[in-house]
Amino acid sequence: MIPASFDYKRAESVDEAIALLGEHGDEAKLLAGGHSLLPLMKLRLATPSFLIDVGRLKDLSYIRDAGDHIAIGALTRHRDVEISDLLAAEVPLLARAASTVGDPQVRHRGTLGGTLAHADPASDLPAVILALGGTLVAQGPGGSREIAATDFFQGFLETALAEDEMITEVRVPKFGGKGWSFQKFTRRSQDWAIVGVAAVVANGSTGIALVNMASTPVRASGVESALAGGASATDAAAQAADGLEPGADLNASTEYRQHLARVLVRRALEEAGV
């Protein structure tokens, strides 16, 4: 279908994009890869009156070694994350998870910053960044600030970004090839996860985050603290759904999602060698 009419401007710089955001307020949307926003617009479920295209800000597409962490530009495509040698060596969980996003067309268009800003709890990479203890860099008219992933996701499709801010960089701590797992349970091979689990063992503690188990990507804090208290993987996994009431949809009831979370967390912990 055809979207409702809108105005469009291609931003030539981050500063210009931020200025346009300030000018158009909540009527405006940033357009990066477009693979979340455009389908909603075509169905007229989203009707922004102004699109600011940041998709060609090439200087925001990079994956760099920054000492204790890897810095990834917000406009880096999923495909580049998937095939990065640096990530394969230092943060293999992220590279693997990126390889399961959608299909090749989606991965060649979709961006890391875009999927984080969209904050769909059914998307894979927000939960992965959460499990990794990542940090987002947001730029606004007054300059840049860092936002911990744990503080970033605030509600269904809601983030800590101000109306006139955009993500410019994502920082993920290096953990090398130590224990990790990404479990994605789908109906069809290229569907969104019904439930997903990202797990990483780093510096003696285990980070676990869940896809599609709440209105935001969430840490499985019950499992994390059980493990910290010395529980076995099986006993800890039994707490994967504690306190979570995921919604029911065509693919799964609340009860079945809770069951899947327990099964998949146990599998993730086993694969991660916990």
Partner: peptide
């Protein structure tokens, strides 16, 4: 294994896109 056209009790279609309606790909 995958496909079903579904309606709710009020007759509203629940499978009106190919995200919700499960046609397979070769990978399935």
């Amino acid at each position: 294994l995958l496909e079903e056209v579904r309606f709710d009790a009020d007759g509203n279609p629940l499978t009106s896109t190919l995200v919700d309606y499960g046609i397979p790909s070769a990978a399935d």
